[in-house]
């Protein structure tokens, strides 16, 4: 199949960027989007041109490294899929695709489609953990956890930290990311002790990093490749007022 690509090229954080056009023929509909870029890069390198910088590691939707915007869709036009889980069969033969990096003030562009997501690590650093040192843990079955509670905590813990929720949000809010972690840990008995301090510090860090406010539009929930529910934002807000 054939596709026309308009790819965002930007040399560095402060450089001016713009779209660059490439026409690709002989594509296989079963290729994933990163594989299509591998194919393009191979051609660019052999022609002595600069290959497109993009990140992708696991290529099965679990590492959160890939992710860019395809024709305005965050990650993918498919539902609950990362960019690497998007295959060319999702597009029409001859279609023109605009590929851009996730855009948010807190995610500076490193090069082309690569962004710096370390702001999310810094939010986790303010309490997105349980403060247990190695070797202190009691017998795991000594604290029973109801089946449904463990399942609900898992639903929140499934976040892969890709930043799609931030990229789609009109305010570039990280409420879904932060809410999911707060909710995951607040649900579990082990995490309850630190819940108050955690929510205050994580929310403060979220603001400090330049993420916007949440207005509960719900766009984040729609693009989340793990299908994480905005109910976790509600949990975060409740935890916040409780604290």
């Amino acid at each position: 199949m054939k596709l026309i690509l308009q790819i965002w090229r930007q040399a560095g954080k402060t450089a001016k960027g713009g779209f660059e056009k490439h026409e690709l023929k002989e594509l296989d509909p079963n290729m994933s989007v990163p594989e299509m870029l591998d194919f393009l890069n191979e051609k660019l390198i052999k022609a002595g041109k600069d290959p497109v910088a993009f990140e992708s590691d696991c290529r099965e939707g679990i590492c959160g490294q890939c992710g860019f915007v395809i024709n305005g869709h965050i990650h993918s036009p498919e539902k609950s899929a990362t960019t690497c889980q998007t295959h060319l069969r999702s597009f029409k033969d001859g279609e023109e695709l605009f590929l851009e990096p996730f855009r948010a003030a807190a995610f500076p562009i490193k090069k082309d489609l690569c962004i710096d997501r370390t702001a999310l690590d810094r939010i986790i650093g303010q309490g997105g953990f349980i403060g247990v040192n190695t070797g202190q843990a009691p017998e795991a079955n000594s604290i029973l956890i109801a089946h449904d509670t463990a399942e609900a905590a898992f639903d929140a813990a499934a976040c892969i930290g890709c930043g799609a929720c931030v990229a789609v949000c009109k305010n570039a809010s990280a409420a879904l990311f932060t809410g999911a972690k707060i909710s995951h840990l607040a649900l579990l008995p082990q995490g309850k002790l630190e819940a108050k301090k955690r929510v205050q510090k994580m929310v403060a860090q979220m603001d400090k990093e330049g993420f916007g406010s949440c207005t509960l539009t719900g766009a984040c929930e729609k693009v989340c490749p793990q299908g994480i529910s905005i109910a976790h934002i509600v949990t975060m807000n409740r935890e916040y007022w409780k604290s």
Binding site: F129, T134, P138, A140, T149, A153, L185, L188
Partner: peptide
């Protein structure tokens, strides 16, 4: 077994039976 204890203490949401046991 100590590893499972460690991971549960860190908040890893292992599957639970309806009785609450792992």
């Amino acid at each position: 077994l100590p590893l499972i204890d460690q991971a549960v203490a860190q908040g890893v949401p292992f599957a639970r039976e309806y009785s609450g046991y792992l």
